[in-house]
Amino acid sequence: VPGGDGRVHVLNATYLVAEQRAEELAALVRALGERTGTRIELTGPWVPYSFVGEV
């Protein structure tokens, strides 16, 4: 799906990561981007949420 700036989005994903491992994930994402020449955007942390309605 093309973005507004002409880039093609390949993957849009959300992961729940333990706070103490957040920097490890960021380092892996940076390494993957460098190795592949791909622009990878990593954002967060975001507040956890749920799609479960009120019970």
Rank of each mutant, 00 (worst) to 15 (best):
P48W: 00
V52M: 10
P45Q: 04
E34R: 14
R21E: 09
E23D: 15
H9E: 14
Y49S: 15
V55S: 08
R7F: 10
T43C: 02
G6M: 07
L25T: 00
H9L: 15
L25A: 00
G37I: 01
N12A: 05
L11V: 08
R39N: 04
F51Q: 11
Q20F: 11
P2Q: 13
A18G: 10
Y15F: 15
L42T: 00
S50K: 01
F51P: 12
H9Q: 15
E24C: 02
E19H: 13
G33Y: 02
A27G: 08
P45W: 03
G53V: 05
R7C: 03
R7G: 02
V10I: 06
V55F: 10
V55Y: 08
T36D: 07
D5F: 10
L16E: 13
L16R: 13
S50G: 03
E54Q: 14
L25S: 01
I40V: 05
E54D: 13
G3A: 14
L11F: 03
L16N: 13
Q20P: 09
T36Y: 02
V29L: 00
D5L: 09
V17G: 06
P48N: 01
E24S: 06
E41K: 04
Q20Y: 10
T14H: 11
V1S: 12
V47T: 13
G44S: 05
P48T: 02
T36Q: 09
R35W: 08
L32N: 11
V10R: 05
Y49R: 15
G37L: 02
T14W: 09
G44M: 05
T14Q: 12
P2V: 14
A31I: 04
N12I: 02
V47P: 11
P45G: 03
A26N: 09
E23V: 09
F51A: 14
T43I: 02
Y49L: 14
V29R: 00
L42P: 04
H9N: 12
A22H: 11
V47C: 06
G3Y: 12
V8G: 07
R35A: 15
V52S: 12
L16I: 11
L42E: 00
E41I: 04
F51G: 14
T36R: 10
V10M: 04
A26E: 12
L28R: 13
G44T: 06
L42V: 04
V52D: 13
E34V: 09
P2Y: 14
R35C: 07
G33K: 03
Y15M: 14
R21Q: 08
G4V: 10
Q20E: 15
Y49P: 09
Y15W: 13
P48L: 01
R7V: 05
G53Y: 03
L25N: 01
